[in-house]
């Protein structure tokens, strides 16, 4: 009778082979569990408590924080703004990024310079550019107002960040002004990703299209766009997730004001947690954010799976 050869921990070669990937992945898994899942779990747990830093008693209150959220006008307006910013900035910056990528993909002597130049908004720290844009939008000292007045296009300076009289519904002037800054800061990354996508499209496809008599628009519509769909899908999904949790520009420029016009969920969570010290309530807001971003992530994973199946 031959004895089966056993090695490390009494496992067979096959078992060891099956176990190997898990062992290699385990440090990363542990790190993710400790640094991501545990805080998420703690946050969710916190959302069921009336946990206010000012008080020593922090009772369990079940769904009370979530019920209160449903009645909270600040929460609803920040959720609406977040969704609007997410969609408008996500789609808008992708369109601008695609335009820039198409320009940068063309043969030009100054292509290198243009590529570096277009990355500018990406490399400037958000604190710096937020303050610069605040100055651009400041009513009395704004160079934009100065230019518009010199050109005779306006007679009074515009309070870009303060005027709530212009606009419809949530699309107020402060909302749109902050959106401009967010678009400006987020298109370069899309441009870089799309540029990589554009460069991976085989030149033969364009050649064939040209031989078939396709115009530039038809080449774009029937060759470029379909070939970019995988990249666009990834970009859009990631952008939606990132934008949903966006904090810095809105906080730095307006702190969510005036009158909630630019308030987004991340800013509302911060102000509730660290301004009003209501950590439990802020955690409940975070719980809603988690829910929404999870939905986007599920859609994204489904998309990836479908693509793999294809």
């Amino acid at each position: 009778m031959t004895k089966r050869k056993k090695g490390f921990l009494g496992l067979t070669g096959r078992q060891r082979e099956a176990l190997f990937p898990y062992i290699m992945l385990s440090p990363a898994l542990v790190a993710v569990l400790v640094l991501s899942f545990y805080p998420i779990f703690l946050g969710l747990r916190l959302s069921f408590y009336d946990y206010t830093l000012l008080y020593q008693s922090r009772p369990f209150i079940g769904w009370q924080n979530y019920i209160e959220l449903m009645r909270d006008a600040t929460f609803w307006s920040s959720l609406t703004n977040t969704l609007l910013y997410t969609v408008l900035n996500g789609v808008g910056s992708t369109i601008i990024g695609l335009g820039v990528a198409l320009l940068l993909n063309r043969e030009s002597r100054i292509r290198g310079f243009l590529r570096s130049f277009s990355l500018f908004p990406w490399v400037i720290p958000s604190v710096v550019f937020s303050y610069v844009w605040m100055w651009f939008f400041q009513r009395d000292f704004s160079p934009i107002n100065d230019l518009l007045m010199r050109l005779g296009l306006i007679s009074e300076p515009i309070a870009f960040l303060g005027n709530l009289d212009w606009g419809i519904g949530p699309f107020t002037l402060p909302f749109l002004s902050v959106l401009v800054v967010r678009l400006w800061s987020s298109f370069p990354m899309k441009a870089v990703m799309l540029l990589a996508g554009l460069q991976s499209i085989p030149a033969e496809l364009y050649e064939a299209a040209r031989i078939d008599g396709a115009t530039t628009w038809q080449q774009f519509r029937h060759v470029t766009l379909p070939m970019l769909v995988p990249v666009l899908g990834v970009i859009l999904t990631l952008t939606l997730i990132w934008n949903f949790g966006h904090f810095d520009i809105n906080y730095l420029m307006t702190q969510g004001g005036p009158r909630n016009a630019t308030n987004v969920m991340a800013v509302a969570v911060y102000l509730t947690g660290f301004g009003q010290f209501r950590l439990g309530y802020a955690a409940a807001m975070g719980g809603i954010m988690l829910l929404v971003t999870s939905l986007i992530a599920i859609v994204y994973i489904q998309m990836l799976r479908k693509r793999e199946d294809l």
């Binding site: 920040s78 004001g257 509302a268 102000l271 010290f277």
Partner: peptide, 20 residues
């Protein structure tokens, strides 16, 4: 102690919303 919550800066703060 609720004073610091009432005076919290930013949307959602009682005095902040009132003043705005």
């Amino acid at each position: 102690p609720a004073y610091s919550q009432i005076m919290a800066k930013g949307p959602g703060g009682v005095m902040f919303d009132l003043w705005q």
